[in-house]
Amino acid sequence: MTHFVVGLFGDPESALSAAGSIQSADLGTPELMSPVPIEGVEEVLGEKRSVIKRFSLFGAIFGGVSGFLLAAITAVLYAHPVGGRPIITFPPYLIITYELTILFGIIFTVIGFFVSARLPNGLWTSFWKQDENRPYVPEAAVDKFAVSIGCGVDDVQRAETILRIAGAEAIRDGTEGAS
């Protein structure tokens, strides 16, 4: 079973440096929890890549193609001579294409965000009760910066020491649930 050790910090720099020392001590990649995005996370914990842009691109292309086909195919299936216009009228259909490109781009971006950020998670399904693998620190939503590391029983002591040296204001066992 994985134990989670959570250290609370008052400022982002100490939290970052603690995260860095944990990583360099081969305890795995720690998770940072913070009320604001921390600058410089990627320098310490390595570059992050997300799949969101692929979702957006796919959504936009899908929306554009389906938008044009929707207009064109419905016009062909049920031909209404309208205002002496050709059956597939490009200028107006391009506007439909444009709007649906954006609509599906947005929808897929959201889906991409949920998938890549793994939301909604266990915290959501059980109304923010503790998810075993997702330690949760309420103070991190206000003004504390938390570093959480999941490790085996043997490493708990080491992790706590590293966090304390880095200047943690409090250390808590993330496995048992938020206080």
């Binding site: 995005p37 914990l45 997300s50 969101i52 939301l119 915290l123 399904t125 998810d131 949760y136």
Partner: peptide, 19 residues
């Protein structure tokens, strides 16, 4: 949705928001 404010979540949010 069970937001915890982890570094990964912030990163994803930033990009999704920008897109």
């Amino acid at each position: 949705l069970g937001w915890r404010g982890t570094d990964t979540e912030w990163h994803r949010l930033h990009w999704a928001y920008t897109f």
